[in-house]
Nucleic acid binder design. Structure first.
Lengths: 202, 202, 202, 202
DNA sequence: ACCTAAGCGAGACGGTACGTCACGTCTTGTC
DNA sequence: GACAAGACGTGACGTACCGTCTCGCTTAGGT
C-alpha cells in the first residue's frame, strides 16, 4: 500500500487509475499485482489466494493478470523472485560455526514474510508441475551452495573424506524445509547441527 | 418400493442402490465413499479431489458425505486409516541393517497407492489445521518408534551416548518425507543411511 | 405448547416422549403435529412451512408425519378443519344489515390466526390439485350459504327478482377473499356492501 | 480457443454459445432466459419453476441468472413486462357494452400464455414481498383505468351519481382475477356484468 | 402369558435445488 | 495495443429439504 507511488498521491490527491503505457507491460501494474499477492498471502494464507482477489485488490483487470501470470504458480514464483533473500555462506574456518551462521540466518529470514512466500511455493508445487520444476531447480542450486560448506570442511578433515558432501547438506536442507512447513522454526536445531558437523567426536 | 421385486434382484444380480439401515451409519456407504476417494486420487491427484466428484462416483448423496466427513481433510484421514501400512522395525542387532530394512520397506510401501494417499495428507495439512494436527501427532508417533532403533544402537555403542536418539531419527524421517513429496523415492538413500548409522567410522 | 398435557408435566416433571399406543393413531401426536404446523405458519408464513420442520417441532418422526398427512396440503386442510370458524348468517330482515353483520364477523375472524391458515390453503391450492379441489368444494358451500341471504332479500324485493342470487353473493365472496389475500382487511368495505345491497336506490 | 476454427462455424452454422459482450448485459442472454422461464411455466407450472432449471434450459450460468434476476419473483415480473397485453378500454357509449368488450378481451388474452404468467405472479406475490408490492401497484393502475369506464357511465347517468366509481370497478377486477386463479375463465360472466352495469333497471 | 401387528421417535439414505464463489475467456471503451 | 471493467458459461462449494427406508422400542389385542 505504501509502496504505490506516494508522491503522486500527495500531489493529485486522486488515487488515479493506471492506464496502458502503450504496447508493453506497465511496471506499475506489475508492482501493484505482486504487492496485492503478497498482501493476500499474509492475510489469508496460500489457500486464500484467488486470482480474482488479486485483480480486485490490485485494481487490475483479470485479463491483464492472466496475460502476464497465467497461473497462481507463476504469480508465486514472480513474487518470490522479487523478494528472495540473499543468503550468507561465510567461511569461518569451522563447519560447526558455518552451519550455525547459515541456519540461524535462514531461520531469521523465514520468520518474516519470506518464509510465508516460500511455503506457498512448496505447497503450490504439489499441484503445479511448473512450480515443482522451478522449485527443484532452486533446491539443487541451494544444495550446491550449501554443499560447498561441507566440501571445505572435508578438506579440513572435519568430516570423512570418502563421503559425498551433498549428503549432509541435503539432510540439513530437509531439516530446515520441514521446520518451515510444520511451523517449527522455533524448535531447537543446534543439536542436529552438532551431529551433522560431526562435532560429537571427542 | 414393493414393486422392485426380490426375485428380480436374485435373478439379475443388480447392484441395487444402498439405503438407510436405520438411525446409524451404513458401513457399505462408508466403503463406497472411501473407495471412490482413493480412485479419484489415483486418477487425478489430490488437487483433482472434489467432494462433489466423490459423492458422484460413490453414488452417495452430498449430505451423506458431508455428514460423516465434513472436509476433504477428514476424508483423507479416514482413507489413510483404512489403508495405513504396518511398518516393520525389526531388530537385526546392527543399526545400519535396521535402517536399511526400515527405509526399504517404507519406500516399497510408498511406491504403491499408500504413498499417494500420504502425500495427499501432507499437502492438505498445509491448508487444513485439523489435518496438520493429526499429521503432527502421527509424525511424533512414527518418530518415537524410529527413535527406538537409534536408542538400541546407542546401548550397543554405535552412536554417541550423549546424543538424543530422536535427532538422527528425525533426520531420517525428513529425508524420507522429502523423497516422497518430491517424487524422489527412486533416488539413492543408502549413502545417507551410512552417515546416519555412523558406519563411516573406520 | 400449553395444550400438551399440563397435568402430566406437573406430576412427573419430565416432558416424557410420546410413544405408540398400539396399532392405531395416537391423538396426542396428531395434536402436536397440527399445533406445530400452526406455530410455524404464524412464525414464518406459509412459505416457511417445511415438512421437516413440522416433524422437528412436534418431536415426531418424519415417517409418522408422512403416514397421516402425505403432503403439505393435507396438513393445511387438517389444520383448517380443526380451527375452522363458525359463521353467523343471522336474518335481520334487511339485506344491508345482514351483509354488514356477515362481513364484519368474517373480517374479525380472519384478522386472527384463522385468516392466516385460510390464506395458506388458498396459496397451496395453486400448486396442489387436491387442495384446489377441496377449496372449490368449500367455496361452493360457503357461496350457497351466502346466496341464501340474497335469496331472502329477493323475496323481500330488495334486489331484482330475475337475478340469480348467487351473482351478488359471489361478488361479495370475491371481494372478501381478495381483501384477505392482499392484506387489505382493514380497507373500507361498507361502500361495496351498499352497492351489493342495492341500497343506493332512493 | 484458437483451435475452434472460424471456418467450421461459417460452414456448419452451429448456434455457438453466447459470450460476454463486454462489461454490460447481453440482450441475447436476457431473451434466452426469459424464454426458458416462459417455457418451463408452460410445461410444469409455476411450482415447477426452479432457478436451476431456467439456467439449464437457457444454457446460461446460474451466476448470470442471479446477477440480473436475484429471485424467482424478479424473473416473473420481467417476463410479464415482456409479454404484457395491451388492453382496450374503448368507449361505446354504453357501460354494458364497454364492460362486455373489456372483459371478453381480457378473458381471451388470459386464456393464452399470458394468463398463466399472470397467475404465476399472483401466486409468487404470496411469498415474495417485492412481487406483492409490484402487483399492488399494477392492480391500482389497472383499477384506475377500469374506473374511468364507470366514471363515464356516471356522467351518462347509468349508475348512481354519489357512488365511488372505483367500487364497481374493483368488484369486476376481483371477479376476473378469481376466475383466472380458479381456472374458471370459461364460466359465465355476462350476468355479473349485467348487475354491475346496473342494466337490470326496468 | 406369549405373540403379532401396527404406531412411534429417530435419523441415515440418495437426491434436487439452493445461492455463492472462483475459474479462465471474452468484448468494450478509454488512453 | 495495453489497460480497467466486468459479463459470460462452467462447475464446485456447503446447506436445506425432499420423500423413503430401517431400526429398536412401545402398546394393544388375539391366542
Amino acid at each position: 500500500m505504501m509502496q504505490t507511488g506516494n508522491e503522486e498521491q500527495q500531489q493529485t490527491k486522486k488515487p488515479k487509475a493506471r492506464h496502458s503505457i502503450g504496447a508493453k507491460k506497465n511496471p506499475q501494474t506489475e508492482i501493484a499485482i505482486l504487492e496485492a499477492t503478497a498482501q493476500i498471502i499474509k492475510e489469508k494464507g496460500i489457500s486464500g489466494l484467488k486470482m480474482e482477489a488479486v485483480a480486485r485488490k490490485a485494481k487490475a483487470g483479470k485479463a491483464t493478470l492472466y496475460r502476464w501470470w497465467p497461473t497462481r504458480g507463476a504469480l508465486l514464483l514472480a513474487l518470490y523472485q522479487r523478494k528472495k533473500p540473499q543468503l550468507n555462506y561465510a567461511d569461518t574456518g569451522s563447519l560447526h560455526e558455518d552451519l550455525l551462521h547459515f541456519t540461524h540466518d535462514l531461520i531469521a529470514i523465514w520468520k518474516g514474510e519470506n518464509g510465508l512466500f516460500f511455503k506457498a511455493i512448496i505447497a503450490e508445487s504439489q499441484s503445479d508441475p511448473d512450480v515443482a520444476e522451478q522449485l527443484k531447480r532452486y533446491h539443487a542450486e541451494r544444495l550446491e551452495a550449501l554443499s560447498a560448506l561441507f566440501s571445505r570442511a572435508q578438506t579440513r578433515g572435519e568430516i570423512p573424506q570418502h563421503e559425498n558432501p551433498a549428503i549432509r547438506a541435503e539432510m540439513l536442507m530437509n531439516l530446515l524445509w520441514q521446520r518451515l512447513l510444520n511451523n517449527g522454526l522455533e524448535e531447537d536445531i543446534d543439536e542436529h547441527i552438532l551431529v551433522l558437523a560431526n562435532s560429537d567426536r571427542k
